[in-house]
Every structure is written in structure tokens, then in C-alpha cells.
Amino acid sequence: MTDDAPIRVLLADDQALVRGAFALLIGSAPDMEVVGEAATGREAYELARSARADVVVMDIRMPETDGIEGTRLIAA
């Protein structure tokens, strides 16, 4: 990542409205871009690898794989 490259953000929340609100806020920042959205921790893990996100904004309570386990998978 270069100094003028935007920060690549992945959003993980099971509520589409919450993801949309965060995407709107992040998308309005000139130095940030949303590179993916996930509804489960497992989806976040898969997208974090393929989208090469710099930052993951993760909800803790999600179906299937929660945010804590999703974070463990990403960090491993």
C-alpha cells in the first residue's frame, strides 16, 4: 500500500442496514473505500483474504460464525 492508496475496509454485520450505514460513512471519506461486505464471520474471513482488506469492522454477534471466531480465523 502506498501513502496515497485508500484504506481498504471490509464490513461484517448480519444486518444489511448497519452495513449500509457504515458503507455510506466510509465511502464518504476520501482516503477510505469499502472492498467487501459480509453477513457472517465465515464470509468475513473469506472476503478478508480475497479482497485484501486493510481493516475489518466486525460485529460480534452474527449467525453461523460469530465475529469473535471470524476475527480468530482472519488473524490466524
Rank of each mutant, 00 (worst) to 15 (best):
residue 47 L to I: 14
residue 23 A to E: 08
residue 67 G to V: 05
residue 33 E to P: 12
residue 61 R to P: 10
residue 36 G to Q: 03
residue 22 F to T: 09
residue 9 V to Y: 06
residue 6 P to G: 11
residue 55 V to M: 03
residue 1 M to T: 14
residue 17 L to P: 15
residue 26 I to W: 03
residue 57 V to E: 07
residue 45 Y to N: 15
residue 23 A to H: 07
residue 39 A to V: 07
residue 59 D to L: 05
residue 43 E to C: 11
residue 27 G to E: 05
residue 47 L to C: 11
residue 22 F to S: 14
residue 20 G to M: 01
residue 32 M to L: 12
residue 69 E to C: 05
residue 43 E to D: 12
residue 60 I to D: 13
residue 63 P to G: 00
residue 55 V to G: 04
residue 64 E to A: 08
residue 62 M to W: 03
residue 54 D to L: 00
residue 63 P to R: 00
residue 40 T to A: 01
residue 58 M to E: 13
residue 9 V to A: 07
residue 40 T to K: 01
residue 48 A to T: 02
residue 27 G to F: 04
residue 57 V to I: 10
residue 70 G to W: 05
residue 72 R to Y: 13
residue 42 R to P: 02
residue 31 D to I: 10
residue 47 L to V: 14
residue 51 A to E: 10
residue 74 I to K: 07
residue 25 L to R: 05
residue 25 L to H: 04
residue 75 A to M: 15
residue 31 D to T: 10
residue 8 R to T: 00
residue 55 V to Q: 03
residue 8 R to Y: 01
residue 22 F to H: 14
residue 5 A to T: 10
residue 66 D to H: 04
residue 11 L to E: 11
residue 61 R to W: 13
residue 43 E to N: 15
residue 4 D to M: 11
residue 60 I to G: 11
residue 34 V to E: 15
residue 45 Y to Q: 11
residue 44 A to N: 03
residue 44 A to S: 12
residue 45 Y to H: 15
residue 3 D to W: 15
residue 54 D to N: 02
residue 69 E to F: 03
residue 42 R to Y: 02
residue 11 L to F: 13
residue 19 R to H: 08
residue 53 A to L: 03
residue 3 D to I: 15
residue 27 G to L: 04
residue 51 A to T: 04
residue 58 M to I: 14
residue 44 A to P: 09
residue 70 G to P: 07
residue 44 A to D: 06
residue 25 L to P: 05
residue 36 G to P: 01
residue 57 V to W: 04
residue 15 Q to E: 06
residue 19 R to T: 06
residue 8 R to H: 01
residue 63 P to N: 00
residue 10 L to M: 12
residue 52 R to Q: 13
residue 55 V to N: 05
residue 38 A to P: 02
residue 44 A to H: 06
residue 39 A to I: 03
residue 24 L to F: 12
residue 34 V to I: 12
residue 21 A to E: 11
residue 55 V to R: 02
residue 55 V to P: 05
residue 15 Q to L: 09
residue 48 A to K: 00
residue 63 P to L: 00
residue 42 R to Q: 07
residue 37 E to M: 11
residue 66 D to T: 05
residue 69 E to M: 07
residue 35 V to C: 02
residue 76 A to R: 14
residue 12 A to S: 03
residue 13 D to Q: 05
residue 75 A to Y: 15
residue 73 L to Y: 09
residue 32 M to H: 08
residue 2 T to M: 10
residue 18 V to I: 14
residue 22 F to G: 05
residue 72 R to K: 15
residue 73 L to C: 11
residue 65 T to H: 13
residue 10 L to W: 08
residue 63 P to A: 00
residue 56 V to P: 07
residue 15 Q to V: 11
residue 22 F to W: 11
residue 35 V to Y: 01
residue 65 T to L: 12
residue 54 D to I: 00
residue 73 L to T: 10
residue 38 A to G: 01
residue 3 D to A: 15
residue 75 A to H: 13
residue 46 E to H: 08
residue 28 S to N: 13
residue 1 M to W: 10
residue 23 A to N: 09
residue 58 M to V: 10
residue 53 A to Q: 07
